[in-house]
Amino acid sequence: MSVDITSRVLPGIGVCQEVALHDGRRIGIVTRRSGLRDLVLYDEEGDGAAENVALTDDEANAVAEILGAPQLTFRLSVLQRQADGLIVEQLPIPADSPFTRRPLGDTQARTRTGASIVAVLRQGAAVPSPTPDFVLHAGDLVVTVGTQAAVDQVAHILDGSAGSADTGG
């Protein structure tokens, strides 16, 4: 379902984006060049802010993650239904994994198995599309997409029970 978003440039300051809600109200998000964000709830006249919440960069990211996390899981389950043979699993990093405190790239999961790691869940917060230098911690859930065999192999790699790197898959 597409949402109506209008953008306004604020010269010298940043951008304001207005989102039209289904009940007729509008919410504005001001992105300042300095990195601060303002969440705006418009008053009944529609032009002015009834309420303006100023968020720092970190606060805005935290709010975005909380708002976005359910979306990620929902989209993945839709993907699962659409592509036969493709599964999505959340693989845990056990405490004794050889990859705790090591970057994701060290697992070479994609090269070795063909499966893709699309997100890492850490204490309920989702980190989508982690880069190869994203450091893994014990307790992280690695959201992996691939065939059953590939995903199983990634599970073995993560808990340290996989063979040497040149075992084909």
């Binding site: 010298g12 529609g46 002015g48 802010a49």
Partner: peptide, 24 residues
């Protein structure tokens, strides 16, 4: 003016681009 707009939370207002345009 930019500081006042930021401090009073009026950056998202519909009249703000007009104000800033005059300043530009």
């Amino acid at each position: 003016i930019a500081k006042t707009l930021g401090d009073t939370g009026r950056l998202g207002n519909r009249e703000t681009p007009a104000i800033l345009g005059v300043l530009v």
